[in-house]
Protein backbone atom coordinates (compact mmCIF):
# COMPACT_ATOMS: atom_id res chain seq x y z
CA UNK A 1 0.00 0.00 0.00
CA UNK A 2 2.90 2.26 0.85
CA UNK A 3 4.25 2.34 -2.69
CA UNK A 4 0.80 3.10 -4.10
CA UNK A 5 0.28 5.90 -1.59
CA UNK A 6 3.71 7.51 -1.86
CA UNK A 7 2.93 9.47 -5.06
CA UNK A 8 -0.09 11.02 -3.32
CA UNK A 9 2.03 12.51 -0.53
CA UNK A 10 2.95 15.53 -2.67
CA UNK A 11 -0.57 16.88 -2.16
CA UNK A 12 -0.01 16.93 1.64
CA UNK A 13 -2.96 14.64 2.29
CA UNK A 14 -4.77 14.14 5.59
CA UNK A 15 -5.12 10.47 6.53
CA UNK A 16 -8.50 9.63 8.05
CA UNK A 17 -9.13 6.17 9.48
CA UNK A 18 -12.54 4.62 10.04
CA UNK A 19 -12.95 3.12 13.52
CA UNK A 20 -11.56 0.70 14.50
CA UNK A 21 -9.52 -1.24 11.94
CA UNK A 22 -9.10 1.74 9.62
CA UNK A 23 -7.61 3.82 12.44
CA UNK A 24 -4.95 1.19 13.21
CA UNK A 25 -4.16 0.88 9.53
CA UNK A 26 -3.95 4.65 8.99
CA UNK A 27 -1.55 4.94 11.93
CA UNK A 28 0.63 2.16 10.56
CA UNK A 29 0.68 3.69 7.07
CA UNK A 30 1.64 7.13 8.40
CA UNK A 31 4.49 5.53 10.34
CA UNK A 32 5.79 3.70 7.30
CA UNK A 33 5.50 6.72 5.03
CA UNK A 34 6.97 9.12 7.62
CA UNK A 35 3.89 11.32 7.51
CA UNK A 36 4.18 13.78 10.38
CA UNK A 37 0.62 15.14 10.48
CA UNK A 38 -1.63 13.39 12.95
CA UNK A 39 -4.42 11.28 11.52
CA UNK A 40 -8.14 11.94 11.67
CA UNK A 41 -10.59 9.36 12.96
CA UNK A 42 -14.17 8.76 11.92
CA UNK A 43 -16.89 6.82 13.70
CA UNK A 44 -19.77 6.28 11.32
CA UNK A 45 -22.37 5.26 13.91
CA UNK A 46 -24.37 8.47 13.48
CA UNK A 47 -24.54 8.02 9.73
CA UNK A 48 -25.39 4.35 9.40
CA UNK A 49 -28.31 3.56 7.11
CA UNK A 50 -29.50 0.71 9.34
CA UNK A 51 -29.98 2.84 12.48
CA UNK A 52 -33.76 2.46 12.46
CA UNK A 53 -33.34 -1.32 12.22
CA UNK A 54 -30.51 -2.14 14.58
CA UNK A 55 -30.19 0.93 16.79
CA UNK A 56 -27.04 2.62 17.93
CA UNK A 57 -23.89 1.03 19.21
CA UNK A 58 -23.49 2.05 22.86
CA UNK A 59 -19.75 2.71 22.54
CA UNK A 60 -19.59 5.27 19.78
CA UNK A 61 -16.09 6.63 19.48
CA UNK A 62 -15.72 10.30 18.83
CA UNK A 63 -14.87 11.42 15.34
CA UNK A 64 -11.90 13.71 15.34
CA UNK A 65 -10.39 15.66 12.49
CA UNK A 66 -7.20 17.36 13.71
CA UNK A 67 -7.29 20.27 11.26
CA UNK A 68 -9.73 22.00 8.93
CA UNK A 69 -10.48 19.83 5.91
CA UNK A 70 -11.61 22.50 3.48
CA UNK A 71 -9.68 22.11 0.22
CA UNK A 72 -7.56 19.28 1.65
CA UNK A 73 -6.84 15.97 0.00
CA UNK A 74 -8.20 13.27 2.29
CA UNK A 75 -7.08 9.67 2.17
CA UNK A 76 -9.84 7.65 3.74
CA UNK A 77 -8.53 4.38 5.18
CA UNK A 78 -10.49 1.27 6.10
CA UNK A 79 -9.61 -2.35 6.65
CA UNK A 80 -12.18 -4.10 4.45
CA UNK A 81 -14.26 -2.78 1.54
CA UNK A 82 -17.36 -4.92 1.19
CA UNK A 83 -20.82 -3.42 0.52
CA UNK A 84 -19.56 0.17 0.37
CA UNK A 85 -22.13 1.34 2.92
CA UNK A 86 -19.50 2.17 5.52
CA UNK A 87 -17.68 4.37 3.04
CA UNK A 88 -20.92 6.13 2.08
CA UNK A 89 -21.54 6.87 5.78
CA UNK A 90 -17.94 8.02 6.30
CA UNK A 91 -18.16 10.40 3.34
CA UNK A 92 -21.31 11.93 4.83
CA UNK A 93 -19.58 12.38 8.15
CA UNK A 94 -16.52 13.96 6.54
CA UNK A 95 -18.66 16.44 4.63
CA UNK A 96 -20.27 17.51 7.92
CA UNK A 97 -16.87 19.01 8.74
CA UNK A 98 -16.24 20.84 5.50
CA UNK A 99 -15.53 20.51 1.79
CA UNK A 100 -12.40 18.54 0.94
CA UNK A 101 -10.74 19.06 -2.42
CA UNK A 102 -10.51 15.36 -3.06
CA UNK A 103 -11.13 12.11 -1.20
CA UNK A 104 -9.21 8.94 -2.03
CA UNK A 105 -10.00 5.53 -0.62
CA UNK A 106 -7.33 3.14 0.60
CA UNK A 107 -8.26 -0.33 1.88
CA UNK A 108 -6.36 -3.38 2.99
CA UNK A 109 -8.83 -5.90 1.62
CA UNK A 110 -11.18 -5.51 -1.28
CA UNK A 111 -13.84 -8.18 -1.53
CA UNK A 112 -16.89 -8.59 -3.76
CA UNK A 113 -20.43 -7.77 -2.72
CA UNK A 114 -20.64 -4.05 -3.46
CA UNK A 115 -24.10 -2.55 -3.01
CA UNK A 116 -23.09 1.01 -3.90
CA UNK A 117 -21.02 2.50 -6.72
CA UNK A 118 -17.87 2.92 -4.62
CA UNK A 119 -14.38 1.78 -5.67
CA UNK A 120 -11.02 1.99 -3.90
CA UNK A 121 -8.01 3.94 -5.21
CA UNK A 122 -5.45 1.91 -3.26
CA UNK A 123 -5.82 -1.79 -2.47
CA UNK A 124 -3.39 -4.13 -0.72
CA UNK A 125 -5.14 -7.38 -1.56
CA UNK A 126 -8.25 -8.79 -3.20
CA UNK A 127 -10.09 -11.66 -1.57
CA UNK A 128 -12.85 -13.87 -2.87
CA UNK A 129 -15.16 -14.74 0.00
CA UNK A 130 -18.49 -16.52 0.20
CA UNK A 131 -21.39 -14.31 1.26
CA UNK A 132 -21.45 -16.15 4.59
CA UNK A 133 -17.79 -15.47 5.31
CA UNK A 134 -16.25 -12.30 6.54
CA UNK A 135 -12.84 -10.91 7.25
CA UNK A 136 -11.69 -8.33 9.75
CA UNK A 137 -8.53 -6.73 10.98
CA UNK A 138 -7.46 -7.56 14.53
CA UNK A 139 -5.11 -5.28 16.40
CA UNK A 140 -3.68 -2.94 17.32
CA UNK A 141 -0.55 -5.03 18.03
CA UNK A 142 0.06 -7.09 15.97
CA UNK A 143 -2.20 -6.29 13.05
CA UNK A 144 -3.59 -9.54 11.66
CA UNK A 145 -6.38 -10.41 9.27
CA UNK A 146 -8.88 -12.92 10.52
CA UNK A 147 -11.19 -14.79 8.21
CA UNK A 148 -14.29 -16.38 9.73
CA UNK A 149 -17.80 -17.67 9.19
CA UNK A 150 -20.43 -15.09 10.00
CA UNK A 151 -22.08 -15.90 13.32
Amino acid sequence: MGSQLRPMLSSDPLFVGIHTGGVWLAQRLCQQLNVATSIGTIDISFYRDDFSRVGIHPQVKASHLPEPIDDRHIILVDDVLHTGRTIRAALNEIFAYGRPRRVSLAVLVERGGRELPIQPDVVATHMELDPGEHVKLLGPEPLTLQRMERR
Binding site: F51, I56, P58
Partner: peptide
Protein backbone atom coordinates in the same frame (compact mmCIF):
# COMPACT_ATOMS: atom_id res chain seq x y z
CA UNK B 1 -23.76 4.04 31.89
CA UNK B 2 -24.57 3.30 28.24
CA UNK B 3 -26.52 6.55 27.99
CA UNK B 4 -23.71 8.51 29.66
CA UNK B 5 -21.15 6.98 27.27
CA UNK B 6 -23.28 7.72 24.24
CA UNK B 7 -23.75 11.32 25.43
CA UNK B 8 -19.97 11.63 25.55
CA UNK B 9 -19.84 11.23 21.77
CA UNK B 10 -22.29 14.10 21.27
CA UNK B 11 -20.09 16.53 23.22
CA UNK B 12 -18.09 18.97 21.11
CA UNK B 13 -20.51 19.10 18.20
CA UNK B 14 -19.76 22.81 17.99
CA UNK B 15 -16.50 21.92 16.22
CA UNK B 16 -18.37 20.70 13.19
CA UNK B 17 -19.17 22.79 10.19
CA UNK B 18 -22.59 21.13 10.20
CA UNK B 19 -23.81 20.66 13.77
CA UNK B 20 -26.16 17.86 12.86
CA UNK B 21 -26.23 14.13 12.40
CA UNK B 22 -28.97 12.38 10.43
CA UNK B 23 -30.03 9.83 13.05
Amino acid sequence: VGILDLAESFVGFEAREIKKVPL
